[in-house]
Design a protein around this nucleic acid. Structure first.
Length: 158
DNA sequence: GCCAACGTTGGC
DNA sequence: GCCAACGTTGGC
């Protein structure tokens, strides 16, 4: 099993939204980045665990845990001319963009913030999230990094 | 194949 | 709101 981190803007679709979805499950559409797509296509498997990260907000950080409940399949929004995610260059016979379904598992007891993780950067090793200029919306997380976040969660907030 | 221009992301 | 970093596009 693999671990992942997926970003979302809470003003657009936060963890509160995910919880309210039917069966707490939602197709993660709109990913239009090849690196992120390749992770979904090649490495992500049903049952993998996901940190749900809030980006582009006052307190960016990891706010919850989700899981992957489908393998990758074509993102229907790429063929919907009315969608913001429409891609005229994507061939229905060979779809360019994929998605996976994710399901809410639990909220973290508190927001484990980006600031806090940066303060403990040494114990995270090589972590995409902590790199300057990182814009990847789906990234792998090592087991060590996963456990480190859960350790931080147990601490009382600063 | 190079690279400048452009649009987007996302922390601050 | 600013702007650095990054990915994509398209002219050449």
């Amino acid at each position: 099993m693999n671990y992942w981190l997926m970003k979302s803007e809470p003003d657009v679709f936060g963890i509160e939204h995910l919880k309210q979805c039917e069966n707490k499950t939602e197709p993660w559409d709109g990913i239009r980045n090849y690196q992120a797509r390749n992770f979904m296509r090649d490495d992500m498997k049903k049952g993998d665990k996901v940190f749900f990260y809030h980006s582009n907000c006052k307190q960016p950080g990891i706010v919850g845990i989700a899981k992957i409940v489908s393998n990758a399949y074509p993102d229907p929004t790429q063929f919907d001319a009315g969608s913001n995610y429409f891609d005229a260059k994507s061939d229905p016979e060979n779809p360019r963009w994929l998605l996976v379904d994710i399901k809410h598992v639990r909220d973290l007891k508190r927001n484990v913030t980006l600031t806090e993780m940066k303060q403990h950067a040494d114990s995270f090793g090589d972590f995409q999230l902590l790199k300057k200029g990182n814009r990847l919306s789906i990234m792998p997380v090592t087991e060590q990094q996963w456990n480190r976040v859960l350790e931080l969660e147990k601490r009382s907030p600063k």
